[in-house]
């Protein structure tokens, strides 16, 4: 059975990198539309196993045993496995298996209230170019006993930016301004000369009633 797996890992305690980034963005760079900031280490992979639940259990065992992925003393994590297709390869399956103690669908912490605009949570996925880390992570999972085979792996950081904006497009434009360092007074979170950037999700918090 083919599946897509997502692993989101976050510190249990205050992440000082996030605190420093927040202060830099809001006090030194005056991004006054930024309302919240969170950081996750993420692994997105395509895998194949015997069944959804069995694959979830096996992956869960690997990531809890191997401190490359999580350290139970200091991390919370969310492992989400979604079946990609049925046996005949036709259509998408909606089956999902979840493991872990972090609910990323509800992890939206506001640091300052919106003034008038709507709130959007943009997940910005930052990866390194020319890195062989993805291969290393694949080996770490495949090297463990079990029946999981990994066909694709993308590892990086996801910065969850909560932004006050007029629209979804406006929020994504602002997320890019905050993230990509194009000039000294520009963004902060990645250097485009060796890192890639992709907005993988934008959620309207105003519509969800999170405000």
């Amino acid at each position: 059975m083919k599946a897509r797996a997502e692993l989101w890992v976050k510190l249990k305690v205050t992440d000082l990198v996030v605190e420093t980034a927040w202060l830099t963005l809001t006090e030194k760079l005056d991004f006054d539309y930024l309302r919240g900031l969170t950081k996750y280490s993420c692994w997105f992979m395509k895998c194949e196993g015997n069944s959804l639940e069995e694959t979830a259990d096996q992956l869960n065992r690997v990531i809890t045993l191997d401190s490359t992925f999580t350290n139970q003393n200091k991390h919370k994590y969310s492992l989400i496995i979604e079946g990609e297709e049925n046996k005949t390869g036709e259509g998408k399956s909606s089956s999902i298996a979840k493991r872990g103690d972090l609910n990323i669908d509800e992890d939206f912490t506001l640091r300052s209230e919106a003034s008038s605009g709507k709130l959007y949570a943009c997940d910005c996925f930052v990866t390194e170019l020319e890195s062989d880390k993805n291969m290393n992570y694949t080996d770490r999972i495949s090297g463990r006993p079990g029946d999981i085979s990994i066909s694709e792996m993308r590892a990086g950081l996801v910065w969850r930016l909560i932004i006050e904006a007029d629209s979804r497009n406006d929020a994504e434009k602002k997320a890019e301004e905050i993230s990509v360092t194009r000039s000294r007074r520009g963004g902060l979170l990645l250097n485009p000369h060796y890192q890639d950037f992709e907005i993988i999700s934008t959620v309207s918090l105003s519509e969800r009633g999170a405000n």
Binding site: L16, V17, T20, A21, T24, K28, L29, T181, R184, R185, L188, L189, L190, N191
Partner: peptide, 15 residues
Amino acid sequence: YQDRVRAGAVAAKDR
């Protein structure tokens, strides 16, 4: 700044 975010990135924004 403990190389937080990226080496040199935070200091580069300093006053």
